[in-house]
Design a protein around this nucleic acid. Structure first.
Lengths: 269, 269
DNA sequence: GGATCGTAAACTGTCGACAATTGACAATAA
DNA sequence: TTATTGTCAATTGTCGACAGTTTACGATCC
């Protein structure tokens, strides 16, 4: 029988590692854990490889901030916590490193990547280029139905923006961007775009984006959708590119406005 | 004492795995292998980790075509060949997978990624977007000296193009693109661009690019450099973007012109 | 003869153990 | 006191072995 992978709850001190993964330890007994019983396990069996599981779980942990940028990741501790050996952990960390979420310092350990302002700035620019391309492609591809969908989304955001309901606006905003990228018809673009967005989560000052004019941002969304609706690739490109670049400016000016705190030590190297 | 890492020459049948890596097995004796003796070893010691070494070596092997797209990679065989255990090999493969060079099929093994025409097309588009951004940034950044350098490069290529000397043109072309990307001042952009170019090496029909009008291509280069020299970001973006997209069209039409052979089996899945 | 089933080899996934390195702390010397 | 050196615990890097899966091949049955 395979090792158990129980995500040993409470082994060390973890906030919320849910037993989202519990392969059939006893093939016979199967209480149907209230939530989907068999499908989950089958999916688990198919994933076939702790490393794959661990990779997504650790990515989640980093995204959720359970491990903060700059933190060192202890292999032994993780292995203990997940009830596995260090092998799969190391494999997962390698994959994460290639994605830039984590940094490998030989013989020292792996550290959650810490993004400098400059790097965040660079990432935004690349993201803008990709998003610009997504807009261009959408303008050439999207049909009436999809455009209507886009307009609906922008309208919903308009409402949230008017009432300054950031909690409602934020997920809608995310969804709109995802929609555009996913409907570009270019999976490579979508994948790279997502990677960049992930990386930006490591930027500690990210939360600053919040304040910045919901109405302004949504006005830009309207321009974007208009260009797509008109099938004007060039204009779509420009509006999409500018949208991200303006978001970058909003963030950067916010960062520079409160130069206090934050920037403790740069390049511990 | 550490394991030896001899890259056991001739163990299985490898064409050219040079003993580029030979850490100080006997700290005393050090014959100064004719080439840089100590520095190499120190660099090796610093890299500290077979996995890191293996990663670059295997990347090289894939790039050089020593393992062809679609081929399965046998961990045991590689371990034997390199004189290591499978652990570091697996770690290196994980990293390569995240870069898209290699594909992981659980319980089956890892396979060198095989790029479909569609994927290559998608990658070209993303590459165009990144290159467009690079052009835009260069237009805003480059000084007289760098522009002069660019013009020199284009002039050299002009000469090669006139005499249809592809072997001279190709490396210059590569160098020009590298130059622009590197001088964009955005390392994230440069890194992603390079990854895409690497991926394109997996496209079997890549060699078709060759025939396609050297003079035409270099004419586009001239436009690019002109825009950069003028400091016209918008025009630079457009010319750089178009340059890659036209290269894509040249490749794609070449592919479609000889529909024979090649496309054996799609999606063995 | 062709399809189904069972078996064995080959290989991947995982583990536990050991070797080497790092970083911290204590002891010593100036 | 301060700088240097020696030692030790903690942690990473690597290995060899075992368990489980896949796949190819041959035997059996229709």
């Amino acid at each position: 029988m395979r090792p158990t992978l129980r995500f040993a709850a409470g082994c060390v001190n973890e906030p919320s590692v849910e037993a989202a993964a519990r392969p059939m330890t006893t093939p016979a007994l199967q209480k149907a854990d209230s939530m989907s019983s068999v499908a989950d396990n089958i999916a688990l069996m198919k994933s076939r490889s702790l490393a794959l599981l661990l990779e997504s779980e650790m990515e989640r942990m980093i995204m959720a901030g359970e491990i903060a940028p700059g933190d060192r990741i202890n292999e032994n501790q993780l292995a203990l916590r997940f009830g596995t050996s260090r092998g799969p952990i190391r494999e997962a960390l390698r994959a994460l490193e290639a994605g830039g979420l984590v940094e490998l310092r030989p013989n020292r350990g792996v550290f959650v990547r810490r993004l400098s302002i400059e790097e965040a700035c660079d990432i935004y620019a690349v993201r803008a280029a990709l998003f610009g391309l997504a807009g261009r492609l959408c303008a050439a591809r999207l049909g009436r139905a999809e455009v209507a969908d886009l307009k609906r989304q922008v309208a919903a955001m308009e409402k949230a923006a008017k009432s300054k309901d950031f909690d409602a606006y934020y997920p809608l905003n995310l969804q709109l961007h995802e929609f555009i990228v996913d409907h570009s018809g270019n999976p490579v673009l979508a994948s790279h775009y997502r990677d960049l967005v992930k990386l930006l989560h490591l930027f500690r000052a990210r939360s600053l984006v919040q304040g910045g004019g919901l109405a302004i941002s949504n006005g830009e969304h309207r321009d974007m959708v208009d260009a797509i609706a008109a099938g004007d690739g060039e204009r779509a490109h420009q509006s999409h590119f500018d949208h991200v670049m303006r978001a970058r400016e909003r963030l950067m000016s916010a960062v520079r406005d409160l130069p206090a705190a934050s920037e403790h030590k740069k390049a511990t190297r």
